[in-house]
Amino acid sequence: MSTENKIFVRAVACVNPFGGTAIKHHEVLAAGYAAPDLKIIIKKLYGQPLRQASHLVELGVIGALTLNQSLAKTPGESLPQATRLYSATGLGDVSKNMKLFEQVSPPRCGLAAPFDFINSSANTTAFYVAKILGLNSRNLTISRDEFSLEVALQTAISDLKNGACNYGLVGGFDETANAACPHFLQMAKDAGAIPGQGAGWLFLSNQDKEALGEVNLVKLISADSSMDTEAWSGAITDSLVNYIDSDRPICLLPGYNISQSECGAMTEKLRNSQVQDYIQYSGAYFTAAAYGISRQFVSKHGHDRRYLHIMKNEAGETMCVLFRVYQN
């Protein structure tokens, strides 16, 4: 097992706008409730509302504030000012975009409302997170459709492993409930999931102090039309060889575009691993992986557990995230 260049998870947060348990979240999504006004939660966490911030900004900020609060529970722990911020969003502030098009198009042909315009900038959430948490280091907003979170995570891990920074805050957030995005809706339908919204954040470090776990690998497996399911699952498990050290099973977290047969092939390769279909309770949104991954660190475990998150995109590429949650 490779032990060098480990990247540790120091704090996490996963939020959905409805609060409550995963089961409750699924119930409210299924019942079609509109997402609640998040300003009350912001006020509770931050002490004041974010004036003119959009729902998406609030969603991202609530996740980051929740993480910061959980970190502060450990004496002496806080987010260092030099923490690099890597935020991921697949659709950005899609509801604001719609509103803006209607403001400037016929019959209105008016001016874009200033705050709608500001909120439509994909990096506005990252700005507010940095401002509220006092971070002034590198600040990136990255997008790659359903791989957005994974690419942000990969970028952070590269920086940490190469010593470009010691701390990275990685988050994914999206809202899709009002988005009539055909590609996304099809993807959610294929996953048998209800469109939702939420955020997940991970505070990473190359130092193991007070770590909750570690991220071992973020890897892209290229699309290869000649690969059948067996070869595909073999290619994934081959890439994990250096990171698996025992007979302990790995819990599989399937993201989007993973078929039943692919899921079956992977569980077989991973010694009959458990499968956790997290999208069923997170709700479907482009960066739901952020929620699915961070949630595993919140759950109580009597022993160390390893997880493999896998996701495919429409081009047939696969993105894998292997991580370990320490006994807590």
Partner: peptide, 22 residues
């Protein structure tokens, strides 16, 4: 997305506006 929106605005198809990078 706005360019696509303008292309379809007469048809009332707003789905074009929910574009994503891909």
């Amino acid at each position: 997305a706005e360019s696509e929106f303008r292309l379809h605005e007469h048809s009332g198809n707003k789905t074009a506006a929910a574009g994503y990078d891909g």
